[in-house]
Amino acid sequence: MASQKPFIAEHIYADAQTGSTPILLIHGFNSNGAQDWDGQQWLAPLKAAGRKIIVVDLPAHGESARVDVPEDATVSKIVATLSEIIDNHGGKADVVGYSLGARLAWALASQRPERVNKLVLGGLSAGDPFAMLDYDAARKFADEGVTPEDEMTAMIASMAMGEGKDSHSLLNLMQGLGREPFDPSVEKPAAPTLLAAGLEDPMAGSVDAIEPFLDNNKTVRVPGDHFSALKSDAFKQETFAFLGIAH
């Protein structure tokens, strides 16, 4: 009998110096921890700096459990689980999130400020497309190939489709998250925050609209679109400098 997968799988890379702050890395939608946080680019230099690294797979991704119904994967439930993970590794962490990972990192730092030391948010959109989708049409698209009339629903639902993807699990995750829409005017992190956005990234192009809601932040633009900005040397270098990691 196969063992049950965890709600949020965690992968620990530890060669940590005593007293150093762990780093929690949260990937984007339709990816996983290993895919977003490359071993040579991210893990090796972080380990060399003496930091414990916690890489998670979000629900419906990687080695985490599928999402059977939207109620299983709300922002609140994910934040509570991420908070427990940090608590199990010393109680406080530097948190780096990209895209969906940044949206959840924002919520984590806002709702559990005692858990977050410094915060890096890459590819964060000021809006919340998951809250605006027609999920009946999205599921019909996944099951029958009927393209939704709403262009945003068609575009985002298509990301959950394709060979090897559990479309309904990913759509359930989106719908669950969309029930607690991202609104920077409602909650904001207190931790020192680095905002990073790709120069050719339309999704994070509105990052300037987020800045007024932060009291202690720095904003940088790095080369690339929404997908390539994460892999840019500039994003990594800005992140490491912000976290005080020599590289």
Rank of each mutant, 00 (worst) to 15 (best):
M1P: 13
A2G: 02
S3K: 12
F7P: 11
A9C: 02
H11F: 08
I12R: 09
A14P: 01
A14I: 01
D15T: 03
T18P: 14
I23A: 05
F29Q: 04
N30G: 00
G39L: 00
Q41H: 14
K47V: 11
I53W: 11
L58F: 13
A60L: 11
H61N: 15
G62F: 01
E63A: 14
R66I: 08
V69M: 13
V69F: 11
P70N: 04
D72I: 00
T74A: 07
K77V: 00
A80L: 05
L82M: 12
S83Y: 03
H89T: 09
H89A: 04
H89S: 00
G90A: 09
G97W: 03
G97Y: 08
G101D: 00
A102D: 03
R103C: 03
A105Q: 10
A107C: 05
A107F: 07
S110T: 12
P113R: 04
P113S: 05
R115P: 14
V116G: 05
V116N: 01
L119M: 14
V120A: 13
L121G: 10
G123L: 07
D128G: 12
M132A: 14
D134Y: 03
Y135V: 05
Y135D: 06
A138T: 05
K140R: 14
A142D: 09
E151M: 09
M152T: 15
T153C: 07
T153E: 01
A154F: 11
G162S: 12
M174V: 04
P184E: 09
S185P: 01
S185N: 08
L195M: 12
D201G: 11
A204K: 08
I210N: 02
E211L: 10
R221S: 06
D225L: 05
H226I: 05
F227W: 11
A234I: 10
E238I: 03
G244P: 04
G244E: 00
I245M: 11
